[in-house]
Design a protein around this nucleic acid. Structure first.
Length: 310
DNA sequence: CTCGGTTGGATTATAGGCGT
DNA sequence: ACGCCTATAATCCAACCGAG
């Protein structure tokens, strides 16, 4: 913690970082060979690097730095823009420190095609006497023109899981991307590789076995969906209270029956790994998801191709 | 060659136990 | 109650890899 010995890992000095940032700002693109080489030589010629026992900067290191920095920058730009005016609530919200990085994500069912899409933000809400409350949803990757009013109770649900709730033997739905299509399949968890979380969230990996073809694959948490076996099992938890706090700030109601497992470890992700008869893709499409609660066949849509920006 | 994503090591922050 | 120490979690950063 204190009085650290000379670091064994390579680190750019503040001066070097500042210089590279300047170059990046000017170019706003990946620098060409000569530029990177020039910077490398520059750094190595400086006092910080030229003394005895000082570590020289390699060309690759400078190049890597630009690659990483540009990657970080583009990721930041990807954060879905939300219109502050309407007190929107981010579809991915940071609650208290949950083990999946604190992000509770929602997905909503589009009335256009009945498919479930990730929610970027809740833009507004309204109450209709004879019906359930509705929220105006901004879908991820779609613009304002695609916003939709959806029924909070029937067409919005929590998407995220806590990694701690995923255990070997659990039956889940897993997002599988193929060349032609990307869809959710029934699968079960064979193995869990716990990893430390960081700013990017959960880094745990799950070895899953797809029920329909028995293929196995390591997947990250964000490709895993809980598969509700008994519809009623889920009830609002602390998470939803937290959501309410956050959400009511923007005045958006919370789906009353979308309680996720985020309160404490091993919340009921599933009733029981063996309690389902759903072992095929068809089953997923016909009843494997929570959506079936509403008995309106939304699940087919869910099971159907989900556009993933392709 | 670039981009997006992943990995692993290092550093920093925090919580908890223990002795005084 | 306080300070010290240790373990763990959280975060940062460089390196690497595969796809296109």
């Amino acid at each position: 913690m204190t009085g650290q010995a000379p670091s064994l890992v390579f680190r750019f000095t503040d001066t070097e970082v500042a210089k590279m940032e300047e170059v990046l700002r000017d170019l706003n693109a990946m620098p060409k060979h000569p530029v990177i080489q020039g910077l490398t030589d520059d750094f190595n010629a400086s006092q910080d690097r030229s003394g005895d026992g000082k570590v020289l900067v390699q060309y690759n290191q400078v190049r890597n730095w630009f690659q990483n920095r540009r990657s970080v920058q583009s990721r930041k730009m990807m954060v879905p823009p939300v219109a502050e005016e309407h007190h929107p609530v981010a579809g991915s919200y940071s609650g208290n420190s949950s083990s999946d990085g604190g992000h509770v994500q929602f997905e909503a069912k589009s009335a256009r095609n009945g498919a479930w899409y990730n929610v970027a933000a809740f833009m507004s809400h309204r109450f209709i006497e004879t019906r359930d409350p509705e929220v105006l949803v901004r879908f991820t990757w779609l613009g304002p023109e695609e916003d939709e009013w959806v029924d909070v109770c029937k067409c919005v649900r929590v998407r995220s899981l806590q990694c701690v709730a995923v255990l070997p033997g659990d039956i889940i739905m897993c997002f599988k991307e193929g060349k032609e299509q990307a869809r959710y399949f029934d699968a079960h968890v064979l193995q869990v590789q716990r990893r430390r979380h960081d700013v990017r969230g959960c880094r745990c990996r799950f070895l899953v076995c797809y029920d329909h073809d028995h293929s196995e694959e390591f997947v990250p948490l964000n490709k895993v969906c809980r598969r509700s076996v008994h519809q009623k099992a889920q009830k609002p938890h602390e998470m939803m209270d937290v959501n309410t706090d956050k959400v009511t700030g923007g005045g958006v109601p919370i789906p009353p029956d979308q309680g996720g497992p985020s309160d404490k470890p091993v919340a009921p992700l599933l009733d029981s790994p063996t309690s389902t008869g759903s072992n095929s893709v068809a089953d997923v499409e016909a009843g494997g998801t929570e959506a079936t609660r509403n008995g309106e066949g939304a699940d087919e849509a869910h099971g159907d191709k989900i556009d993933v920006g392709a």
